[in-house]
Computed example of a mutant assay.
Amino acid sequence: MRIIRGILSPMNSELTIVIVAKDAATTIGRAVASARASGDWPILLIDDCSGDETIKSAQDIGGDHITVHKTERSIGIGNARQTALEYTQTEFAMWLDADDEILPHRPAAMLQSLKNGADLCFDPAVLFDPSSGKDTQALPIPDFLSKPDGVLRSFERNWIPALTGGFRTGFAQTVGYDRTFKCAEDYDFLLRAITQNAKIDFLRDAGYRYAHSPTSASRNVELTRAASQAALAKHNFSEMRRRVENSTLPGSEQYLTLAHIATALDLENEWNSVITKLGKSSEAVPPYDRSGKWLSAYLRATAALLSGDHRLAASLLTPLTENDNAADAHNNLGIALWHLGDHTAARVHWQKALAIMPRYLDATENLRAAKQHPTHITHAPLRRAPSRSGYKR
């Protein structure tokens, strides 16, 4: 690795704004400009062997506030983030992706949170359209995450809209990033940080602007799902079960979280055990607004679809579609019926799903492929909370 250029500002030297980038010449100027507008903070850029003018674009805006290092070779985002940790010199830091922006108050707010004792801190975000510059959607952090032990539900799925948060550098270096991850490296980091008893603070005010781009790696559902499964697979189920069952989470939330871990680890007996317990719960699980019984049936139907038992899946999903809001159940029932030979009924259910959620990608793709081979199963129930994907898949 070689130092390209840069000095650390002597003024606000407690926190560094860290950017990792590859071939981001068209967007990084915007990101760096937002960092400069937030105050006199040092900026660290890790360039992952870009083949364009990413470094020049960043330096043109960042000036003497930016320090640049290049990775020795480009092997993925996990390696780039780990490299960034190795070069971060301040006690505290925060991430900024090369195609996003921060709001002016964010570094100071995160610095205060970290100085108050947090190891990691996260804030709500705003989705924006980079072509127009207009904000399109607020992305709050769900309230249940801030409740005691609520962060354990991160093992169910990533509920934090912007994992590009702030961190205590020494703690982050202890956890480290997995250099082999091509995506979901931040989710993997979060899960391992939780098991190392990270003190996590959730800020109230949005400080991050997420660029809405269909080409982003996070929009590749299959790729992200596989990486998330790999992150979950690092954790021992017995240890996680002990931790979750000893937590203050309500029973239905415990069992739902454990079901996702058991799925990632391919533990059929453990999965059946927690799914059965989930199915006995009448508690509504936020933010799905579904009872444990409903969620249990949905997850059993998903497993049946994936194993090819379409008749069982249809029998489990049909009662779930009686709910007026069950776009996900309609979509998956359509898959089951299509495989059972009732293509007309399958199309009806995909149309009903789209009537409920017009931008629902799974149902859209299934309807488009209805004459061939529709394959888009919605593996987990649709979240009833704003997310980066408009269709909330």
Rank of each mutant, 00 (worst) to 15 (best):
R2T: 13
I3W: 07
I7A: 11
P10R: 11
M11E: 15
N12M: 06
S13C: 11
S13N: 15
I19M: 04
I19C: 00
K22H: 14
A25S: 12
T26F: 01
D40I: 02
P42M: 03
C49A: 10
A58N: 04
G62L: 01
H65M: 06
T71K: 05
E72L: 14
I75K: 05
I75F: 02
G76Y: 00
A80E: 02
Q82K: 08
Q82V: 06
E86P: 11
T90N: 07
E91H: 12
M94T: 10
L96F: 03
E101A: 01
I102K: 02
H105V: 02
A108P: 00
L114S: 01
S131W: 10
K134Q: 14
K134T: 12
L145S: 05
K147Q: 15
K147H: 10
G150C: 07
S154E: 12
R157Q: 12
N158D: 09
N158P: 03
P161F: 08
T164A: 10
T174L: 13
V175E: 02
T180E: 11
K182Y: 06
E185P: 08
R192H: 12
A193Y: 02
T195K: 11
D201K: 12
F202H: 01
D205T: 14
A206F: 02
A211Q: 03
H212R: 04
S213N: 12
S213G: 09
T215P: 02
A217S: 12
N220G: 03
V221R: 13
Q229L: 14
F237N: 06
R241V: 06
R241S: 14
L249P: 01
P250G: 12
P250N: 10
S252H: 07
Q254D: 08
L256P: 03
T263R: 15
V274R: 00
T276F: 08
K277Y: 03
S281V: 00
S282M: 11
E283M: 10
P287T: 06
Y288I: 06
S291P: 11
L295W: 04
R300Y: 13
A301Q: 07
T302H: 12
T302R: 13
A303Q: 14
A304Y: 06
L306I: 10
G308S: 11
A314S: 12
T321C: 08
E322P: 04
N323H: 14
N325A: 13
A326R: 01
H330Q: 05
L333A: 04
A336W: 05
D342K: 09
A345C: 09
A346S: 07
R347S: 15
H349S: 10
Q351K: 13
M357A: 15
L361V: 14
D362W: 10
E365F: 13
E365L: 15
P374E: 05
I377D: 00
